[in-house]
Amino acid sequence: MSTIVDDRTGVGLAEFTDEDSAPRVGLRWRSALPPLAWLVLAGITTWWPSPQEWPRTEEFVALASTVAAVLALLAVLGPWLGVFGARVRHAEPWLIALAVIATVWELVTAKLAWLPVPFFMPPQAILEVYLDEGGKLAECVFYSGLLLVKGFAIGALVGFAYGVALGWSPRASYWGHPILRFVGPVPATAWLPFAFFAFPSSASAGVFLVALATGVPVAVLTWSGVASVNSAYYDIARTLGASERFLVGKVAIPAAMPHVFVGLFMGLAGAFAVLVVAEMMGVKAGLGWYLQWAQGWGAYSNMYAALAVLALLCSGAISLLFAVRDRLLAWQKGMLRW
């Protein structure tokens, strides 16, 4: 649980290791490197001449300078910032790497023009998209997020209930198992044509598809989780006077939770894929739709900008699920950290 404490493992800073014998808290000259790197980015962008004028270059320089200023402030205040300061120090190699990547990117596109122009553009062009089309992108994030939340919630709940029923009741298993075996392996995207005419709106069709992609792995893993519960747990509860309801709710389900979470992670990954495809194919909103639209118009910077936002959305959703799991399954040993 203590990843932020160790600030000695700076990947790009191995040559500065003699510094490590110095006391931990105090001004460190290597903390000056991240603001310096961002200042270099701002300087190159401003003073290196470009063959072609790119809009929003000043704003990009201002952004890089602001980042440099904030990092400089954090470097000075670091020793007094406690855990947050340690976190920033831990991130130093990455902060430098990001500035270096942005500088190289700026050089090979705007300054040296090594990469073909309509498909590749300098960072300020991406910034331009966020500044000019931020509202539209935010709207897309909202619709994608809504579709994801609705579909994932419905799929997870139905899949969980289905899995518990299969694992617990022989009758539910008799009828439910063949259906799951027959329908489960079909990729959710194969239902696209069906969903778009069977549902009243493209949005509800999208919810159905995302729910299906989520529900199947959740059902399978919940079922296997409930079925593999140590039978001695039931014996214990029964001798203590437990009812059937208690056995399901307080023994089978908590014991199956680690499996359920594996299913939820698989379901979430499947939900992302289906979400984007559904938005590209029929749902007239969201990031998938925006990607399709940007590609159709040859607006490649819009495409990259939307991809970055999509990555943030998916990564954020996964992080949230990890946080929920860490809280609910704190009793487990040796969990993977995200």
């Binding site: 214990i236 001798t239 006077g241 908590p254 014991a255 009793w331």
Partner: peptide
Amino acid sequence: PDPSRVVVFQDPTLYPWR
């Protein structure tokens, strides 16, 4: 089973989530 007759097994079989 009846709660007046309680069993202690060879394995403690404590519920790991509690």
